[in-house]
């Protein structure tokens, strides 16, 4: 009996902890700090400035007219499903900072009918490379073409990805960016926001 009581207590505590632990942490970005710019040229510290909110982020480059708009559209659909909630921040983060300046991202944002809490982020090449490494997004120039005005334009192979960060800046969900049914993301967010 002397042994049974403390072990039962231990059992209850452990059960409480394990059964209420929430989703598995895929990557912890809470100790990272990336100085980036949003589409208005305003400095943002990622993910620190978004702590206290869930973050749904997709990875794009604006010279991609097919897959990357699908990623952005999926983010928009999630935002609309939740009727533009205040506790969820939506981000499109470029992996092509050479071309995707804040001005370009502002124009890109204007192509979509976006609500508040939706930003596009860029930074210097080094910062973007470190940020992409931390979220395990890969990109590489795939081929280059010379336009009729003799200017070169390059295209990129890239990870197709959307991630969800919890309020502490930890990645808790990952999805195929353009091909994941939006309902998956919505259901997962509903679960963690309860």
């Amino acid at each position: 009996m002397k042994l049974f009581l403390p072990s039962s207590l231990l059992f209850l505590v452990f059960t409480f902890i394990t059964c209420n632990s929430g989703p598995k942490i895929i990557d912890d970005l809470s100790d990272k700090s990336f100085e980036v710019l949003n589409q208005n040229g305003k400095t943002v510290i990622f993910p620190d400035d978004y702590k206290g909110k869930y973050v749904v982020a997709g990875f794009i480059y604006t010279n991609c007219p097919d897959i990357c708009p699908l990623v952005t559209q999926n983010l928009i659909k999630v935002q609309k499903e939740f009727s533009n909630p205040d506790d969820i921040q939506f981000l499109g983060i470029t992996f092509d900072p050479k071309r995707d300046t804040p001005e370009v991202l502002k124009n890109y944002k204007g192509l979509f009918n976006l609500d508040k809490n939706f930003d596009f982020l860029t930074a210097d090449s080094t910062t973007i490379a470190e940020l992409m490494d931390s979220v395990r997004v890969r990109s590489q120039v795939s081929f280059t073409q010379v336009r009729e005005d003799d200017k070169e334009v390059y295209f990129m192979n890239h990870s197709d990805k959307i991630i969800v960060l919890d309020k502490k800046g930890r990645i808790i969900f990952e999805y195929g960016g353009s091909m994941t049914p939006v309902s998956y993301i919505v259901e997962d967010l509903q679960t963690v926001r309860r």
């Binding site: 231990l10 632990s21 598995k24 808790i172």
Partner: peptide
Amino acid sequence: KIAPTVLLILFLYVSCGKEPESKRPD
């Protein structure tokens, strides 16, 4: 008596630890 309790705790740890829902196939 502690042995079965430890086993039960281990079992619960395995069964209650939640995997990310996003493991669903795209």
